[in-house]
Nucleic acid binder design. Sequence first.
DNA 1: TCTTGAATGTAAATAACTTTACAATTGGAT
DNA 2: ATCCAATTGTAAAGTTATTTACATTCAAGA
Lengths: 230, 230
Amino acid sequence: MSYIFNFGVPGFMDALSPEQQKLVEDAGSIRRYSHKQHLQSRGDQDQAFSIIKAGSVCFGKTDSSGKFIALATLEAGQCYGEFTVFAGLPRTHDGFTVGETVISHISKARFDRLLLDHPDLAGAIIRVQTLRLHQALEWIDDLRRYPLKYRLGKYLLFILASADGPRIAITQSDLADLMGVSRVAVSGVLADYRARGFLRPVYGGLEILDSEGLRKWLRSFLTLDPLVAH
Amino acid sequence: MSYIFNFGVPGFMDALSPEQQKLVEDAGSIRRYSHKQHLQSRGDQDQAFSIIKAGSVCFGKTDSSGKFIALATLEAGQCYGEFTVFAGLPRTHDGFTVGETVISHISKARFDRLLLDHPDLAGAIIRVQTLRLHQALEWIDDLRRYPLKYRLGKYLLFILASADGPRIAITQSDLADLMGVSRVAVSGVLADYRARGFLRPVYGGLEILDSEGLRKWLRSFLTLDPLVAH
DNA sequence: TCTTGAATGTAAATAACTTTACAATTGGAT
DNA sequence: ATCCAATTGTAAAGTTATTTACATTCAAGA
C-alpha cells in the first residue's frame, strides 16, 4: 500500500539519484519498532525526516469522538516527516507501525544542513511535492464528484497495480478507514462488485477476478480520469 | 476569494523577498482578458507560470456530464501554473477569468532559467508547495469527516477573514460550486445558519451577523481543527 | 415604470452513506 | 479438537445530499 492520494507519484528516495539516496540514508539513525507501536501524535512538535527501512506505518487522524480516518499506510522505502522539515509544521497526523518496523530518522537540523550542502536536492523535492499536491487535488475532486461505488474501484485498481498477484491483503475495515467511510458501505460496494464478477472477497482480503472488466466499467463513469484509462 | 484549500498559506509572491518578487515579475509578459474569457482547458500541453495582476481566475473541472466543480478562484497577486512548471504536467484544470483581468505569463523555459540563475528561490517554493500540500490533506480529511453543515461554516469564516467587512459577495450557486455540492444543499445550510442568527443572506451575497457565534458553534464539532480555534 | 434574467426559498422523491445490531464464517491459539 | 477473537454479510432506521420543480424576490436596463 502507499499514500492513497499518491499512486503513480515517486517517493522522495525514488526521485533521487543513487548518490543522493546514499547521502540521505547515511544521515539517519536507525530505530526498531514492534507491531502497532505509537510513533507520533498530531500536534507533536518534534521535527524529523524519516525513511521506512522495513515494515510499514499507518497515518491518520482521530477526532475527539474517536473516529479514525486513515490518510495512508506507507511501506518500506517511503518517507514521512516532510511537513515538519520542509515547512516547520508540527506533526499533522497520528502514526503507528503496522508489523515489525525499522525506521531511519534524520533530525531537521541535520536535514537542513544536508540541503545546504547539496542544493541539487531541491529540484527533486520541488518536483515530488508538486506531484503530491497534484494528486491531492485530484483526490479532492474525486471525493466531491464520485460516490464510493466508483472511488473504491479506482483505489482497488491502484492497489492491484503494485501487488504481485490477484490477491489483495486488506480487511474491509482497513479499506473503510482508508476510504474514509463505514465498513458497511465498503461491504455493500464489494457485494455489488462480486455480483458483477469483478472480484471475490476472501477472509482478510480480496481476490480480483476481472480487473479489466472493473476498469472498463469504471471508465464509463470516471470519464475525466486518465488513471483508470491506463 | 482564494484557493479554497489554501487559506492561511502565502501565495508564491508573498513568500518571496522584494528582490525576488521583482525578478519574477520582470520575467513575465502582460496580457489582458475580458470577463468570463477562457484561459485553459484540462489537458492542455502549454507550460507557463502566471501571475494575476488584476481581476481573478476561476479554476475547476467539468466532466462529460457537464458537472462543474470549482477548485478555487484566484485573485490579483496570486499565481498559477506551478504544476506545468515545477512538475512538467499538462494543465490540470479548466480556467476562465472572472471580471476584467490582467495576467503576467512566464514561459517554462524562462522560469527554469530564472530558477537556475537564482537557486535561492527553491527554498520559498519548497515551503509554499509543502504548505499547500498540507492544506490539501487537511481539506481531504474535512471532506471525509464532516458534513456540509460544518464545512461551509468553516469556509465562510475563512472568506470573512480576508474580507474587509461583514458582507461576502458570492452567490449561493458559486458557493455550491466551490464546496462541490448542490445549490439546494448550500441554501439549506444557510437557512439553518440564518435561524441560528449567524448570518443573513442578501441578494448576491451574505452578511455575517455573528462570526464569533458561528466560530463557537463550529468549534464544538470541528474539534481537531486549529483553524476554527483561531 | 415595466420587463426580464438572475438569484433565492422551499418542497418532494430519490440516492448515498451512517449507525446500530446481530448472525455466520474464518483461522489461529490453546 | 475446540475455543475465541477477528472478519464478513446483511438488515433496518436515520441522516445527508441530490435532482427536479416551482414560486418568489431582486436589480438592472429599456
